[in-house]
């Protein structure tokens, strides 16, 4: 009985620790160093990290959702694009500690992280 109760509880929380990387704007983000049809002018390199807190095995997110693509797009500013984009999500040592010790093996709560890295560039039409 206990097992079924737990299963139902956990299934009701499926979708937990969800991370969605997406971007709806007018700029362009790619993992490659070049953009087809354009010359790339390097502006600067960036690296970033974001962390989100979730209640009850990741079922109830708190604050702004993790989104590596949106985070990278915010770095573009007045420029055109991001190339060499690297997106990673998962748990580092701090997330693992929070999730497994004070949050009691994620039953009470937990945290998840996103890391982004890339180069902001301007695009010029190739001739």
């Amino acid at each position: 009985m206990r097992r079924w109760t737990t299963l139902l509880l956990v299934l009701s929380l499926s979708g937990c620790f969800t991370v969605r990387h997406s971007y709806e704007g007018d700029h362009l983000l790619t993992s490659t160093p070049e953009v087809e049809g354009y010359k790339v002018r390097h502006v600067r390199h960036f690296e970033g990290h974001d962390r989100q807190f979730f209640w009850i095995h990741g079922g109830f997110p708190v604050g702004e959702d993790l989104n590596g693509a949106e985070q990278a797009a915010r770095e573009i500013g007045d420029h055109d694009a991001v190339v060499n984009l690297q997106l990673t999500d998962g748990q580092n040592v701090t997330d693992a500690f929070i999730t497994h010790i004070p949050c009691i093996l994620s039953l009470l709560c937990g945290t998840w992280s996103v890391w982004v890295e890339g180069d902001v560039v301007d695009l010029e039409e190739a001739r």
Binding site: T88, G90, Q91, I101
Partner: peptide, 28 residues
């Protein structure tokens, strides 16, 4: 296992690399 996880500090790590013709956003 918990100690190993805490020591290495890299759980469920998924790295997302895009192939050459795939982008977030859209071309101008």
């Amino acid at each position: 296992l918990v100690c190993a996880s805490l020591t290495t500090g890299c759980l469920f790590t998924a790295r997302h690399e895009l192939p050459a013709n795939a982008v977030f956003g859209k071309f101008p």
